[in-house]
Design a protein around this nucleic acid. Sequence first.
DNA 1: GCTACACCTTCCAACCATTGGAACCTCCAG
DNA 2: CTGGAGGTTCCAATGGTTGGAAGGTGTAGC
Lengths: 150, 150
Amino acid sequence: MLIGEAAQGSGVSAKLIRYYESTGLLSASHRHSNGYRLYEERHVHELRFIKRARSLGFPIREIRSLLDLWRNKRRASSKVRAIAMRHRSVLEERARSYQGIIDVLDHLIAACKGDDRPDCPILEDLSRPSARSSRRPPRIGGSGPSAKGS
Amino acid sequence: MLIGEAAQGSGVSAKLIRYYESTGLLSASHRHSNGYRLYEERHVHELRFIKRARSLGFPIREIRSLLDLWRNKRRASSKVRAIAMRHRSVLEERARSYQGIIDVLDHLIAACKGDDRPDCPILEDLSRPSARSSRRPPRIGGSGPSAKGS
DNA sequence: GCTACACCTTCCAACCATTGGAACCTCCAG
DNA sequence: CTGGAGGTTCCAATGGTTGGAAGGTGTAGC
């Protein structure tokens, strides 16, 4: 089949299929005499695999490993699992980082009146020198090490 | 002061300061006769502002608005608040999306034995056609949104 | 004056995944 | 023969940051 059909069958755009080929992730089996890329059913399967993995946030580099493992019938599932766990920890770190920011924004948004006057704790925070957690006075209340919670 | 001093004073690299200038975010006041950029204290303040805003994940485009508001003493705090809230919702959406993926990975990782045999639910999921949520029967389970509880 | 060095300048490239466009070729139908 | 739908290639942009090259400038020591 031609690239258009592979694209439609997999949900991956023709442009992206060519890009994947350029990165060595997935290459067409043959070229037709006119230069057109030719694909088989298994390419569509692999493209769907890639698409699903991308939708789970795996970077191309790791998808390459996952594809290799998928093709290798002698694989050890521990390797797949390790990749998934590493990726999970990356995502968790990012989610945690986002959540930390959201918590800060929540404080600032709650403190900002949001009227037509200029006073704004949000801008005040952004323009503060750099000792951030000043809203928590030092050595008072002594609840121990900071840690924004989580 | 020269760009190096402004960089050291703000924590923003000289390279980045030049990039910010190229995008119109922050321009040096003058140029010395030899072509060197010249900065004042207020530039360092603005660079710190930018740095803090970036650390909260604001994109340059929004930082531009925030800087404009910060400079404008007749601003309405409602505008600042609106920007912060919009940004908050973007972050929340991303965090939620990550969390959704993490939940999926948790299921898959738990189901994968992770030994030296090839059987692997993770790869099976990735290679499955596309009807994803089959593992969750509709309207059962309803433990509500995860909520890691800050 | 010469040399070494630290600092500045500009321009180009790379990261990551994806999309868009231009310029061009190819196959098929009308 | 013309039109159109598909294919091909290469270049550019996204967003923020970093790296490097190639070269100008200022200041120190000799």
